[in-house]
Amino acid sequence: MKHVTTKRLPPIPAVCLLPVQPLLKRIVKRIILDHPTIFDRLGPYKQCSYVIDAGRLPFLLLLRPDPLNPRLRALTRGPAHPCDARITGSCAQLARMADGCGDGDALFFSRDIHITGNLDAVVCLRNAIDDLDGSIMDSIWGMLRGPGKLLGQPARRRYHRRAATWA
């Protein structure tokens, strides 16, 4: 992993993550609603647990891409969480990959992402996401309503501006 100069937000205790969980649940459901075939390619890895360590986030994400019972949960940093694979990178780089704007191999070569655990499961997840038409980030933006949508617009515009120059 490259030396990261940006500071990570301080870890959040588990109780503070409680309000985040329903939001994450909605996000994963929305993604599957918008992209119903997203996890079809995962074959034997639908039951796998992926821990995603997105750089500055004060918590980890746990993804279990079971199409029948998808899970995306926030986990506290600190204790080692059992998982099949762990993917580490900055929020921006991981968002790029999730959106098909970043090349996983290039990010790996440049050491911007790091993978441990079951590499086959990670490659399979990468291939499944890369097979998508459309944007996962747009699905997430699309969930925002009212003031959240209003506040999110500048961030969305900034994301799309930057995405146009990526890769």
Binding site: F108, F109, H114, L119
Partner: peptide, 28 residues
């Protein structure tokens, strides 16, 4: 398999064979 050592280097293995060790700021 990729393993990270205490110095931050990544050790790449294929089966039981170690095939490379990438220092923290080295291209892979």
């Amino acid at each position: 398999r990729y393993d990270r050592d205490s110095a931050g280097a990544v050790i790449a293995s294929l089966g039981s064979h170690v095939i490379d060790r990438f220092a923290p700021d080295e291209q892979a």
